[in-house]
Amino acid sequence: MLKRRIIPCLDIKEGRTVKGVNFKNLRDAGDPVELAKLYVKQGADELVFLDITATIENRKALAGLVERIAGEINIPFTVGGGIESVNDVSALLKAGADKVTINSSAVRKPELISEIASQFGSQCIVVAIDTKLINDEWMVVVNGGRTPTTLYAVSWALNVEDLGAGEILLTSMNNDGTKSGFSIDITGEVSRSVNIPVIASGGAGLMKHFSEVFFNTGCSAALAASIFHFREIDIRDLKRYLLNENISVRC
């Protein structure tokens, strides 16, 4: 049976792991490679690395970090942050990333999704969608949640699937950093609408939040950051808990 995946996300700023609340008040959470190795040991199923301050100058440094990660990590990992072109993707894949994730640039240039999919395959392109409840509608927001758009989350998800995305990383900005649980309604709606895997993100605080999102939505994976970085939840304990709840996970 295909297992539900647990994915720690490492936000990277100038080579260090950081974590904030609603993308603000960043705290240092350590060396990304060391943290990644710890998560692999604990049984993480995949890893996501997001360079949250990606600039052109940082790009070479990011490729260097990806090379270090690829040398040491024996599970799949995704890299994102500031990807604007097929060339950016090519450099990260060459450095050893298994997948890349794009967010704001996909909204600005939807054709980038198809370009990446046709050149490297759908399996390596994860489209990240940040969504926020605005006037009772789940809308797509960009630039780390600061800029609203006129796109509805569900229709944008269907659109990115058509364009060739292999997976969707869906973050509820209302829930992110709050530790009050994942957003069940939008995660369920997006997951039921598309036929590609959806990763739920934003709001994990307790182990029961993971079983809730797996029970009540068709999501394939759940992603979290601070609860793992600050050792509030050990992935091994989380997986034992989920097994007891009859959710199929890799142990």
Partner: peptide
Amino acid sequence: PVDKIPHMGWNN
């Protein structure tokens, strides 16, 4: 297309 495609993740 009766389930999510690609088959992505860990399976026994």
